Amino acid sequence: MMTDYDLPVWFWDPETTDEDRSDWMTQERCRRQAMRQQTAYRRRMEQSAERRARREAANPATVAVEEYR
């Protein structure tokens, strides 16, 4: 099935109910809409990504992927 969603591993698990899948899809659509708008959620997510990138850049154990391409 082609989709632009990054589906979680558990999504197609036989034990997952249709209601669980529907809830996840609804939350994902809400998250995407919030990211398209100037919301507090978007600012928090952008700040979180920036902090994560700074930590990775400052960590001496990380290696730049570009060096291996």
Rank of each mutant, 00 (worst) to 15 (best):
V65Q: 06
A49W: 00
R51Q: 12
E56L: 06
L7M: 12
S48A: 15
A58T: 08
R36C: 10
P14K: 05
A49V: 05
R69D: 02
R42A: 07
Q47L: 15
Y68E: 05
T3Q: 02
R36S: 12
R44E: 10
M35R: 06
A53G: 05
R29N: 09
T16E: 03
S22E: 11
P14H: 00
A58D: 13
C30T: 12
T17A: 03
R55A: 10
M25I: 15
R51T: 02
V63Q: 03
R43W: 06
Q27T: 03
T16I: 03
T17D: 02
R36H: 07
W10Y: 09
T26Q: 12
Y68L: 15
R31E: 04
E46T: 08
R43A: 10
V65I: 10
D20M: 15
D20T: 12
P14T: 03
A57D: 07
A58N: 14
A49N: 06
T16Q: 01
A57Y: 06
W10D: 02
D4A: 12
R21Y: 00
R31L: 14
R54I: 04
M1I: 13
A40L: 12
E50Y: 13
W24G: 03
T3R: 05
Y41E: 12
Y41D: 05
A49K: 09
R32K: 04
A53P: 01
R21S: 03
D20Q: 15
D4K: 12
M35S: 02
T17I: 08
A64F: 03
T26A: 14
E19G: 10
D20H: 14
R21F: 01
R42E: 02
W10L: 07
A34R: 15
A49E: 07
S22A: 14
S48L: 15
R69S: 00
Q38N: 13
T17Q: 03
Q38D: 12
R21T: 00
N59Q: 04
A40D: 12
D23F: 05
Y5M: 13
E67S: 14
Q37E: 11
P8I: 09
A34D: 01
P60D: 01
E19D: 13
Q27R: 08
A57P: 00
T17N: 00
D20I: 09
W24K: 03
A58C: 12
M45T: 11
S22V: 09
R31A: 14
Y68I: 07
A64D: 08
V65M: 07
P8A: 09
R54M: 08
V65E: 04
T39G: 05
Q37W: 11
R51M: 02
D6I: 13
R69G: 00
P60H: 00
Q37A: 10
E19C: 11
T26Y: 04
M2E: 12
D13R: 00
D23N: 13
S48C: 12
D4M: 11
D13Q: 02
E15V: 11
R31N: 02
R51K: 11
Y41V: 06
Q47C: 11
E56K: 13
Y41W: 11
A58P: 00
A34E: 08
V9F: 09
M25R: 10
W24Q: 03
A64I: 01
A64G: 06
E15S: 04
E67P: 02
E46M: 14
D20N: 10
R55N: 11
Q47K: 13
A58R: 11
T3P: 05
Q47F: 11
V63H: 02
R54T: 07
A58Y: 00
S22W: 00
V63E: 01
E28F: 07
T3K: 06
A40Y: 04
T17P: 04
T17V: 07
